[in-house]
Simulated scan of single mutants.
Amino acid sequence: MTIEPEHDAPEQAAPVSSPVAVVTVTYSSGEYLHSFLRTLKTATTAPVQVIIADNGSDDGAPEAAAAADPTVTLVDTGGNLGYGGGMNRGVAAVGPDVEFIVIANPDIEWSPGSLDELLAAARRWPRAGALGPLITEPDGTVYPSARRVPDLISGTGHALLGAVWKNNPWTVRYRNEDAELVERPVGWLSGSCLLVRRAAFESVDGFDSRYFMFMEDVDLGDRLSRAGWLNVFVPSAVAMHAKSHSVSRHPERMITAHHDSAYRFQADRHPGARWAPVRAGLRVGLAVRARLAIAAALRERAAAEKTARTEEER
């Protein structure tokens, strides 16, 4: 089923009733979406309604997924709203009786029983507004998905130095990689895969759609905490993240969005005239870092393309 966007009208509710809904945002996600839906079938024994909020794909994958499975509803967002904006549109299409909503990237692959583990943890933690699994990378490396909320010093230090000095003290503190892999409340959880309690998500008005991409999960986790909810890390649930295919295809746009979001997060929390010099310095520093990161990404892409052409010519 496909839901088309309507101007100044609320999204229609998906027709399938279930105790949990899964919402993903697509932007030409291709085979990733197929793996996402295939592995989701083993992640829980509960009936699941799936909402695909499509931000303008041109690969036909969302339409094919909706046509193949009656539990999948396709919501056309009407354009590329970014991750948070697209996710808000998808959540708005979830039936009103659904208490728990999974928010996940389409390049997630679920481990068997992982969603059931998150649902069980949600019942153990009634004040949990968001719960996140242990996330691995394709090579099996554990991704630091449960982190501290960055303050001005640690956030700035990580933003400016994280790419060139990976073990700097601000990045180490922010990423929180040395913490034990035990179930516990944390500052925020990766938005690549989250189970949110609908009441909590709606109490903070969902994602802040001003964040086109990146940092929207940090902002959500911080606002949930400020509203009295917990962000709970659940390492007994495991998911694999293929990691940002959109970034590799569009480094200029994505790196710029990342740095813009880093600035917005700190600027929102440090308003007023007395913080103006700090905000100005942060903006300049992030702009310089963004230009350097874009140049490096473009060089890396050019080298990869050259290598591919050489291989083809052999």
Rank of each mutant, 00 (worst) to 15 (best):
Y83I: 12
W188R: 02
T2I: 14
T310A: 14
A128L: 08
L119S: 05
A239K: 11
G56C: 06
T24Q: 00
L152S: 09
D54C: 02
A121P: 06
P47G: 04
I101P: 01
G140N: 08
T39Q: 03
A67I: 01
V16W: 00
S35H: 13
H245S: 13
D58M: 05
A280F: 07
E183V: 07
V234K: 01
I108G: 04
A66H: 01
R264V: 11
K166N: 05
S114D: 03
E305N: 13
G285D: 10
D97Q: 11
A43G: 07
T310R: 14
D58W: 09
I101T: 13
P138Y: 01
K41G: 11
R283H: 14
R301V: 12
R210A: 15
G60C: 04
S111Y: 07
Y211T: 04
R123L: 03
L224M: 06
L119H: 05
A276M: 06
P251C: 13
A43H: 02
A104R: 08
S145C: 15
E137M: 07
S18M: 00
R38N: 07
I103D: 05
N55G: 13
N167T: 13
L195M: 10
V149M: 01
T136K: 04
N88V: 08
L134A: 10
R184C: 06
Q49A: 10
Y263P: 10
W275Q: 06
R314Q: 06
E137V: 04
E99Y: 00
A163I: 12
S111I: 01
R124P: 11
L298F: 09
K306V: 13
G281P: 04
R175I: 12
E216W: 03
E180V: 04
H7M: 06
R289V: 12
L33F: 00
E183L: 02
F214L: 14
A200K: 01
S145A: 15
A92C: 04
E117H: 04
A290G: 14
T171A: 08
H7I: 06
G30I: 00
A199W: 01
A237F: 00
Q266I: 15
E252Q: 14
D178I: 10
G86D: 03
E109L: 15
N168Q: 03
A304Q: 12
P10L: 00
A302H: 03
